[in-house]
Design a protein around this nucleic acid. Structure first.
Length: 702
DNA sequence: AAACTAAAGCTTTTT
DNA sequence: GCTTTAGTTT
């Protein structure tokens, strides 16, 4: 890409950010201001125009997803592979350095990286040995994590007994934990950063080597850096000072896990003559949404002054809906989504429902399932993540592909058939010898000698059941599912509570074939795979950071939830809640709907809830209030009027599948008019949305 | 090895 | 209240 072409796609501030490449640069990138664009264009500019070898640009992000997106976009802009470049997360890039240098710290280069469950197990075994209540391991783990994030090693903790709220028992655990890690030649996540900092500080020659190797540093989400990450960045950049930090103090919502917004101020102090660029033009949201966002964040003290503006229109009015309780709130949201969808203006994937705590997802899920709406939960357990659903899906997967040994292992003892770990290990060993799938090995074992009769009986029992199911794999899916429940005895074993979910699964399989059903099911459970499926996104506001949706619902805008009651006593935490609310609002592109419940069940008690205190910071004219009355729900709606065919008797109701002679099969999205002159909106996969009159269009219902 | 029972925890979370 | 997990029993 040429310099001209590159710059022509940027606004003046973005250009400023991309063109300033000598010395420290701080880019304050407001929500929706094209932050990723600036970072990727800057990378491309450094590489293609300034001819800086791409391998000497260190670009650090927080999540794998952000790193992957950056790589993809840089590849797209430059047309060159990003393989081997230093684009990645703080952790992965630190690990890469440590793989080469860690022997200098007394570890071997083939060190292991412990994930949080490994770390947790290690802590628990230490607690057991020290006779400390094991249930405390989570708290201890997070305390150790925050110490490491602040670069406080066990030695340092012991040396400053008075400084850090010293607790002798805890210090012993910390010392021991770190010892064990070393013995196991292992590092936990926080060690990756802390040890890299140690390496640089204790070995000036190594530091110098990397200072030379990286002639430019690019850091994303700078407001999320913790002390150790900041120190590392500073060390690596302290020589040439070519460092660009991109962040937004208004979107700092991870203080609880060690992030320090103050690093933004520190940056300006530590790097003299820092050039500051503000990206304030917002390309994402309507004026109405920005007004709300702006009035909420304006009251945040100590923020760096900035004001987002947009050339977008005023857009839709913003609503705040009050429901009598959390179930009604969920119904209201689900109903509104239905109407938006039927109007054909939005598909499900354009819509997100955000909330403060994962617990809120439960009622939302229930409401959406009642209405047959596809949804996807980010984090937490979704419908497809439930054990019973995963079990049954595994049965189906196995029926479709008996070589799938992973699924086999999941189902072989569900319900229990006395085929436990020992038996499976034997079968696995035999399978390895014979170089065959587990299932084929099982069939072999039944026929061969040299196994006890009871073992063969157990396996035969399983194989017979499954074999019958495989024979019938081509019957209609709901039938097949019922056969699975009966033959395996799953329903009676699973109990009644799970029966509802299983029935829901049968209903959702209506009219689908095995293959496509399984595809959607695994897409739902797959966490990181990009989802092509049309589904509403359900997630916490935290997980929504960095994303955008045409339509955003934020549920539970009440005191106690937003801000959360744990945060109201502490001013800093309260301000973080404010920023969290701001992050939620700024995810919306065209439409924002906030809602609350008068009464909400939280843990044991039903509480009377008050509207969020943050609402009083928004001028009254910026949004309008709606009351959700439980009975009138089907008729009255805050957002859009119900489709005219609500009581329509025409066979072409919304959701019906129809065939058109020219456009093929489509789905009715909406229909209007009286019985003798019905007009329908139909979505055809081939040509998109079409408005047709039943009198003239030669539609056939299928 | 599985099934039952008691008990804890319960804001947000990536690496 | 509900869900997860640890510990005990069969």
């Amino acid at each position: 890409m040429t310099k001209q072409a590159l710059l022509s796609e940027l606004n003046p501030q973005q250009k400023d950010a991309v063109l300033n490449n000598k010395g420290p640069l701080l880019v304050l990138a407001g929500a929706g201001s094209g932050k990723t664009r600036v970072i990727t264009y800057k990378f491309t500019y450094l590489m293609s125009v300034l001819k800086i070898p791409p391998a000497s640009i260190l670009a650090m992000t927080f999540t794998n997803k952000a790193a992957a997106e950056m790589k993809e976009r840089v590849e797209g802009l430059t047309g060159k592979s990003v393989n081997g470049l230093w684009i990645g997360t703080f952790h992965s890039l630190s690990a890469r350095i440590l793989r080469k240098e860690i022997d200098k710290l007394g570890f071997q280069k083939d060190f292991c990286i412990y994930d949080s469950s490994d770390s947790g197990n290690l802590i628990r075994s230490i607690l057991k040995e020290f006779k400390i209540h094991e249930a405390l391991y989570k708290g201890i783990l997070s305390k150790i994590s925050s110490l490491k994030a602040s670069l406080i090693s066990p030695e340092k903790l012991l040396a400053n007994e008075d400084s850090y709220g010293f607790d002798e028992k805890f210090a012993r655990v910390y010392v021991r934990y770190q010892d064990e890690l070393r013995k196991n030649n292992s590092l936990d996540f926080d060690d990756l950063i802390m040890h890299t900092v140690n390496l640089c500080e204790r070995h000036p020659d190594v530091l110098e080597k990397y200072q030379k190797e990286f002639s430019y540093l690019l850091i994303d989400e700078f407001q999320d850096t913790n002390a150790s990450q900041y120190r590392l960045s500073r060390l690596l950049a302290s020589k040439h000072k070519n460092i660009c930090a991109v962040g937004d103090d208004d979107q700092s919502i991870y203080k609880f896990r060690g992030a320090e917004v103050r690093n933004i101020q520190k940056f300006k102090k530590d790097f003299s003559k820092t050039k500051v660029v503000r990206l304030e033009q917002n390309y994402r949201s309507t004026q109405n949404i920005l007004n709300i966002a702006g009035s909420v964040i304006a009251l945040s003290p100590e923020r760096m002054p900035k004001k987002l503006w947009t050339e977008n229109g005023k857009g839709e009015k913003i609503c705040y809906c009050t429901a009598i309780n959390e179930k009604e709130e969920a119904r209201y949201i689900s109903q509104s989504i239905k109407e938006l969808y039927l109007k054909g203006r939005y598909s499900y994937k354009d819509i997100a429902v955000l909330y403060r705590i994962n617990q809120q997802s439960k009622v939302l899920e229930e409401a959406m399932r009642e209405n047959g709406q596809p949804y996807r939960i980010f984090g937490g357990v979704s419908f497809y993540g439930r054990k019973e659903i995963k079990d049954i899906i595994s049965y189906l997967k196995f029926i479709a592909n008996p070589d799938d040994s992973v699924s086999l292992k999941r189902i072989v003892n569900c319900p229990p058939r006395q085929i436990g770990g020992t038996t499976i290990t034997r079968v696995e060993n035999e399978a390895r010898k014979r170089d065959e799938s587990l299932y084929n090995t099982m069939k072999h074992i039944i026929k061969s000698n040299g196994y006890t009769a009871s073992l063969k009986d157990k396996i035969r029992g399983f194989v017979n059941i499954v074999e019958e199911l495989i024979d019938e794999k081509n019957i209609a899916l709901p039938e097949l599912l019922k056969k699975v429940f009966d033959k395996t005895g799953y329903s009676s074993w699973a109990g009644e509570e799970k029966a509802d979910n299983l029935t829901a699964l049968v209903n959702s399989s209506e009219g689908k074939d095995l293959r496509s059903f399984l595809d959607t099911a695994s897409l739902f459970s797959g966490l990181d795979e990009p989802l092509n499926d049309d589904a509403v996104s359900l997630m916490t506001i935290h997980s929504s950071k960095g994303l955008e949706f045409p339509v955003v619902f934020i549920a539970g805008i009440e005191d106690g939830l937003m801000p959360h009651f744990h945060a109201v006593k502490d001013t800093d935490e309260l301000e973080e809640e404010r920023r969290l609310f701001y992050v939620g609002i700024t995810r919306a592109q065209d439409m924002l709907v906030m809602s609350c419940a008068r009464k909400r069940r939280l843990y044991t008690s039903v509480q009377e809830q008050q509207p969020s205190r943050f609402l009083s910071d928004i001028p009254p004219g910026y949004y309008h209030c709606v009351e959700k009355r439980p009975r009138a729900d089907a008729v009255a709606s805050a957002i859009v009027k119900m489709p005219a065919n609500f009581f329509n008797t025409s066979p072409y109701v919304t959701g019906a599948r129809v065939r058109h002679p020219k456009w093929g099969v489509g789905v009715v999205r909406d229909s209007y008019g009286e019985t003798d002159d019905v007009k329908v909106t139909v979505n055809f996969p081939s040509v998109g949305m079409k408005r047709l009159s039943l009198k003239f269009a030669n539609l056939e219902k299928i």
